[in-house]
Structure formats: structure tokens, C-alpha cells
């Protein structure tokens, strides 16, 4: 029993130590989001494989309201990407935490459009939403910024 607890403590000690270091950054954090934040909702993916645009179903997005997004994916030569696999995560870089929910693609709407459900942002401030896209040209990622 005590052995179990010790092992669990050990297991967590590494992430906890990392978080503790992060805590120093947190302490100075009451800063506003970076001034040069790219807030555009249409972007090229990090490796340039796709163009992704997102359309939040709430405008403006309010703190704490569950809503959906429509994600549109196209290839470099502007062809819609169907049957892509999309994973969504995100969080608050200045607070060091993730999303309060686990959003998922709920429907492939066709013509490169996908319905994502379960988006929710529970604090005011700077959020990032990361989309991992796996399509015909391979996997790539893209990050969108939001300020609530």
C-alpha cells in the first residue's frame, strides 16, 4: 500500500518538477497576450501542406459557452481535402493548461468541410487551438490564436 503511494509519488515527481519550473513563469503572468499575435482564422499549415480555415459557431466567442466550429481544409492548389483525420487540442500558453473539454470531429460535411463539436474556453485571455490534419499529402499541424 505505502509502496504503491511512493511509486505514484515518484511517477508524478518529474511532471510536477516541470510544472514547478513553469510556475515561475506563471507568477509573472498577469501580462496581456503578445501584441503581435496572429489572430487570423485562415492559415497555411506549419509545413505548408494545407490551407485550413476555421469558423467558430459563436461570434464573438464567449467564455464558458460550449459551441462547434466548422473547419475547412484544402490542398496547396486549393482543392478541398475530404476524408482527412483531424485532432483538436489547445490551451492557454500563459497559464500552462489545456482545454477544459475534448473536442472531436462529429461530421464530415463534404467539400473539405468538417464539423468539430465540444469547443469551450473557460477563462478570459489568450488561447491557442491546435489542429493536427492528416490528409492525402501527409500529416501537418496548424495553430490558431484567440483572445477572449
Amino acid at each position: 500500500m505505502s509502496n504503491l503511494i511512493t511509486r505514484r509519488r515518484l511517477f508524478w515527481s518529474v511532471p510536477v518538477a516541470l510544472l514547478a519550473v513553469g510556475g515561475i513563469a506563471v507568477a509573472k503572468m498577469m501580462q496581456p497576450p503578445p501584441a503581435d499575435l496572429d489572430l487570423s482564422l485562415a492559415k497555411s499549415t506549419d509545413q505548408g501542406l494545407y490551407t485550413v480555415s476555421v469558423e467558430p459557431g459563436l461570434s464573438p466567442i464567449s467564455v464558458g459557452t460550449m459551441h462547434g466550429w466548422v473547419v475547412q481544409i484544402s490542398t496547396r492548389d486549393s482543392k478541398p481535402v475530404d476524408h482527412a483525420r483531424i485532432a483538436v487540442d489547445g490551451g492557454m500558453p500563459q497559464h500552462g493548461h489545456g482545454l477544459p473539454t475534448e473536442p472531436q470531429v462529429s461530421a464530415d460535411l463534404g467539400e473539405g468541410r468538417y464539423q468539430v463539436e465540444g469547443m469551450k474556453f473557460n477563462m478570459p485571455g489568450w488561447w491557442v487551438v491546435n489542429l493536427s490534419v492528416d490528409g492525402p499529402d501527409g500529416p501537418d499541424t496548424v495553430t490558431f490564436n484567440l483572445v477572449l
Binding site: M29, M30, V63, G64, H95, P100, N122, M123, P124, G125
Partner: peptide
């Protein structure tokens, strides 16, 4: 709403983020 950072978690008219 500022230096105390209370609205990180105690936000909205009920002052909770329900998380």
C-alpha cells in the same frame, strides 16, 4: 479583475468557470 487574477476561475455573472 486585474492583479489578483481572480477572474481566471471566478468569471461570468456567477463568478465560477464551472470547471
Amino acid at each position: 479583475v486585474g492583479k489578483g487574477e481572480c477572474t481566471k476561475c471566478h468569471n461570468g455573472p456567477l463568478m465560477t468557470d464551472n470547471f
